[in-house]
Nucleic acid binder design. Structure first.
Length: 448
RNA sequence: GGCGCGUUCGUCUAUCGGUUAGGACACGGCCCUCUCAAGGCUGAAAGACGGGUUCGAUUCCCGUACGCGCUACCA
């Protein structure tokens, strides 16, 4: 039996971080077993289903690198998609649900009630064998004691989640349902439905939820709840993936940064932890820095330049060589890509704004003569490269009888406007003599 | 209220009944240093509580507390 798993999100307008992890675990299991990963859009909730809402999900999954073997190829519900078990939008499957409801009615396992259709739920407790949680016996709640049957088609003719979900899993021959623990209690209903159709239920694996750092449940607005957050903050996708597979699952040997192919190799359902996790953004930030330092300069440039343009910097006046040289001084810092414009924006403007606080401290009259001297030396030094600039600056400080910092700090501020940034000498080399001298002149003029 | 699931440092986790309860992130200190990082060394930091079972429990069982989920003609 070949494994078929699915991720079945509802297009609510955002991709929840927990949903992303659910998708990732499904994907990992499919890749681990050589099975098929299906993407199905559960858009029966008429009200707020838009193509944009579907695109948010597709884009999020693509950004994470989670490719699906079957499912939609665009946000359009009417487009065919790939795979032979379509359509993959529930809104396009109404005839199938109708047929299945008729089947239940014919077996007298469903009946009309006040315009709706209700399913005859067994009265006995149902055993849910779960690959993560173990065997769970669902007793009837007090309300279910009174009336165990539940609605499968609303009085307006719309089929409800429990029905569509089960019918699709059945029709699409899903073998393993890996989903959030919020569905665990409802699984009894789903198992009953499968049996009513005369089918064997799939294997279930309910994975714990992701909560806020304080243990409260995450809502749309909470920081880090939405995948969009990570995309816009400029995380490396592989860092987010790494963070997610380490939430609730861990490989042997205290490993933190693990290449995805190895995870695919090791991943399995029973090792998934059974308690909820709390989202702590400091960890993925660290992972981001790790991945950024390890990635190729080419990939870094690509991501960085995209982020810089997005933040509104006009890069067009600058040559590719200049831009690449500038980015090479930033990679080791491991900043989020959204922070790059603030960190390295000085490379791409000819009017540096000085940090007022720092200017007050560094652009003092006492620093003027030393900086003028350095300016003189830098006007003729050759070659204008990092090593030479460093030794030159240090010699200059020695001759003046001052500490190197007396030159370093005002120079950094003059050239970048900030007190933090890339390595000073490397940044000077990239800027080039002309810009450096101009910026020093401008700073010197402010020092009297 | 009922039903279900869970509970190891602040956070993510390791521990297949016997450990000085380990690692990572974050945090503190020191070193390095052109800023910020990185790196090296180092510090503080945990078994929710109460009962059992056992020679011995973080580990197995029960209860309590707390958290989360479900309890819809939402998904």
């Amino acid at each position: 039996m070949t494994v078929r798993v699915r991720f079945a999100p509802s297009p609510t307008g955002y991709l929840h971080i927990g949903g992303a992890r659910t998708a990732l675990f499904n994907w990992l299991y499919a890749r681990h077993t050589g099975g098929t990963f299906v993407l199905r859009i559960e858009d029966t909730d008429t009200a707020r289903n838009t193509q944009e809402a579907v695109d948010v999900i597709l884009d999020g999954l693509r950004w994470l690198g989670l490719d699906w073997d079957e499912g939609p190829e665009s946000g359009s519900a009417t487009e065919a998609g790939k795979g032979s078990f379509g359509p993959y939008f529930q809104s396009q499957r109404m005839a199938i649900y109708r047929k299945r409801v008729e089947e239940l009615k014919a077996k007298d396992l469903a009946y009309e009630h006040e315009g709706a259709v209700k399913f005859r739920m067994p009265r006995e407790p149902i055993l849910i064998p779960d690959q993560v949680v173990g065997d769970v016996t669902r007793e009837l709640t007090d309300r279910e004691q009174a009336d165990p049957d539940f609605v499968i088609v609303r009085s307006d003719g719309q089929p409800v989640f429990h029905l569509t979900n089960v019918v699709d899993d059945l029709e699409m021959q899903i073998t393993h349902v890996i989903r959030g623990e919020d569905h665990l209690s409802n699984t009894a209903k789903h198992i009953a439905l499968f049996r009513a159709f005369g089918a064997e239920p799939p294997k279930y694996a309910h994975i714990p939820l992701i909560l806020n750092i304080d243990g409260s449940k995450m809502s749309k607005r909470d920081t880090g709840a939405s995948m969009t957050n990570y995309i816009e903050e400029g995380y490396a996708p592989e860092a987010v993936v790494n963070y997610l597979f380490l939430l609730g699952w861990s490989p042997k040997g205290n490993r933190e940064i693990v290449p995805l192919p190895e995870v695919v190799d090791m991943f399995d359902l029973p090792q998934i932890l059974r308690h909820n996790a709390r989202l702590d953004l400091t960890k993925p930030q660290w992972m981001h820095a790790e991945y950024v330092r390890a990635m190729s300069q080419e990939r870094f440039n690509d991501l960085a330049i995209r982020a810089l343009k997005k933040s509104g910097l006009d890069m067009s006046p600058y040559s590719a060589d200049y831009i690449h040289a500038a980015m090479a001084t930033c990679k080791e810092k491991g900043k989020l890509f959204s922070e790059l414009a603030g960190f390295a924006g000085f490379y791409f403007t000819e009017t540096v704004e000085f940090d007022p606080e720092a200017a007050k401290k560094d652009f003092v009259p006492a620093n003027k003569p030393p900086l003028q001297k350095l300016r003189e030396v830098y006007a003729t030094v050759n070659p204008f490269d990092a090593a030479t600039l460093e030794s030159t600056l240090k010699n200059c400080a020695k001759e003046l009888g001052v500490k190197a910092g007396v030159l370093i700090h005002p120079t950094r501020l003059a050239c970048t406007g900030k007190t933090i940034g890339p390595s000073l000498y490397h940044l000077l080399e990239v800027l080039g003599r002309e810009r450096v001298l101009a910026r020093l002149d401008r700073a010197i003029s402010q020092m009297s």
